[in-house]
Design a binder for these strands. Structure first.
Lengths: 368, 368
DNA sequence: TTGTATGCGTTATCAT
DNA sequence: ATGATAACGCATACAA
């Protein structure tokens, strides 16, 4: 109740106040026409202090650490805040306290629906903790990522979330020098920059290959995007294939972003090459869905004529016909834990596990 | 070349510098073990100035407005920046200049893929202009939107992007008092808060209804989400229906977020109610896709037995079987223009059209 | 073209 | 529990 109502209180009265009287030093309304325009300077802590008959620092404390201020004083401050319509200036606050309450988040893409849930979870969790998110999209190039992080650091974020574990040396240097907590997400390594919350793409490749091999499939078609992490899943698969032996496979490379259309085209390409396939393995559910549609359009039935496996367990995966066998990752959890890890570390709370493997689940559905 | 290389130059050398020598006032490396730790204070403009033998303000100018500084001086500054590993502090800069170069963006959802392209376009365009994006998700409640904007304003953004045109009075007051440019997006009104870039949902409703009526359809099933803008499209349709007369329709309300599963369930609900339908109209492509899948699963063929129309022209709409007849909106353009409008206004450039109707296109495909 | 003085709005530190 | 003073790092305004 209090938390929710503070903003309301904060902003409710300034407009009226401005129209009728002024608490502002050097900011008096000069005449009617000036009064009609917007005030030159929004109210500051000092204005609130004057209205409350207190010192600015007491007002600051009443707002930030009400516990160490006499309740009566806090009440007076709240009243003055209402009266003046005070809005804190976090630029000034951040400068003085060296705490921006800003978290920078860098993801390779946002329009491929893979990272969205994670981003959403990050903002949600951060909002709860009183932080805001600065979101940047880096593409899949380590260079642009470094450039982006460089400009991002000028905001003096209290922490940063990076997607993946492969960064340019330049970027690593920046981060190290900035001396802020980092969470790498969506991948696993024994040597994170700082903290990490992710899962093993190689193991996923293994698991998918193992599942299909155990079902008796031997002739595979691969539809694969060229990003780092898809490459790791690929590697895991290849290892499983080699261990098995007598496996044939053929691949098509799908440019990013992976769309349904490209899934259809990918399968068309595989089929038109004349190969015969027991199963099609796709580096994302979107591609898998496209493959299924294209297969059906060609009169093939899935999984009888050809099995299809995806990755991601996107929201549609369980509802297509046939539903898609895929790998599920708790994408929301990645975001929540990343945000929690950062906020905890920033606030000096103990961080027990700085590397978290959230694992994955193979969801067996109808398509394979 | 220069733009791209500046961050690289900025950050390249600080680490080495810190290990070997110090330009920092009161920040000298005391001993080997201290040197191993991170420096207490990152280099400031003053440190760069000292390294370059110039005054801080000259360094500031060389960095921000190199045009008004002698090229030789600029070179000296760049060198000093490299040497010190200087990273500007935009909290301080924003405080002093009253320009944060921050744009706040508030959207109702990010995981429904409708707003993602717009958000992506906003960040891209803003990055080009030297701004960063502060992204917040408000849900579909005007109250939480107001609360979010309130906390957002404490960052002193130079501008703000709001989704939709229906905001609480409290929020309007906040924005008015903050006296910053606002762009409302994804809707149309003759009375925007400030600037606006969107399209008419009512006209879309009209267009969809007209299209189906002209095809001879009279018995409609509606699958609709309860958000404001969907409501406007609904209203437009109803008007067209009434004008036509002799139209029957039945609706199911779909809770947000609209998923494929809910599309399937929605159609199931309509069908199980015993009604007969010429066409199913959905408030999003995702629902339409779900409806198509469910219809096919029930042995109905689309569009022969029942036509289906969606909204949004999401990337999959053209690739499903059958492909989805829908309304296309240039979502990326909304973002680009919103960002451009804001940046222009912030920078004092002339803004000719503060209300832009980007229109829409009915994409006739196979499903209807 | 470069420099000096000052202020931006807040919090840390030390005092009372 | 409250206050005084001094940063925080930069840019504006004006001077040279």
């Amino acid at each position: 109740m209090i938390c929710i109502s503070i903003p309301a209180i904060l902003f409710f009265c300034w407009f009226h106040t401005m129209m009728s009287q002024s608490f502002m030093k050097g900011n008096a309304v000069k005449n009617a026409s000036d009064a009609k325009k917007m005030p030159v300077r929004p109210p500051t802590l000092e204005d609130v202090a004057r209205a409350a008959g207190l010192s600015p620092i007491t007002v600051s404390r009443a707002l930030n650490t009400p516990g160490i201020v006499r309740p009566k004083t806090v009440a007076k401050v709240k009243e003055a805040v209402q009266l003046t319509g005070y809005i804190p200036n976090m630029l000034a606050g951040g400068l003085a306290s060296r705490r921006s309450r800003l978290i920078a988040v860098v993801v390779p893409q946002i329009n491929n629906s893979m990272f969205i849930d994670t981003i959403q979870a990050i903002t949600d969790e951060l909002a709860l903790r009183g932080y805001h998110m600065l979101l940047c999209v880096s593409g899949y190039s380590a260079e642009t990522e470094a450039d982006i992080v460089a400009t991002l650091l000028s905001r003096r974020p209290d922490g940063i979330v990076l997607t993946g574990i492969h960064h340019s040396n330049e970027l690593k240097k920046c981060i190290l020098n900035a001396a802020i907590p980092v969470v790498e997400i969506w991948d696993l390594t024994p040597t994170p920059l700082d903290m990490l919350i992710g899962f093993s793409h190689e193991k996923i490749g293994h698991a998918v290959a193992g599942y299909l091999l155990q079902k008796g499939h031997r002739r595979f078609g691969l539809m694969w995007t060229p990003d780092q992490r898809a490459g790791l899943r690929h590697k895991g698969m290849m290892e499983a294939f080699e261990r098995q032996g007598s496996v044939t496979f053929q691949e098509v490379s799908i440019p990013l972003p992976a769309t349904l259309r490209r899934g259809r085209e990918g399968l068309a390409q595989l089929m038109d090459s004349g190969g015969a396939f027991d199963a099609i393995i796709c580096s994302s559910d979107t591609l898998a869905h496209g493959a299924i549609i294209e297969a059906q359009d060609r009169g093939l039935s899935v999984p009888e004529d050809v099995a299809v496996v995806g990755f991601g367990d996107l929201d549609f995966a369980g509802c297509t016909a046939p539903s898609i066998t895929t790998i599920s990752i708790d994408r929301g959890r990645i975001g929540r834990e990343a945000a929690t890890l950062l906020a905890d570390k920033i606030e000096g709370l103990p961080v027990v596990n700085n590397v978290v493997d959230i694992g994955f689940t193979l969801i067996e559905r109808d398509s394979a």
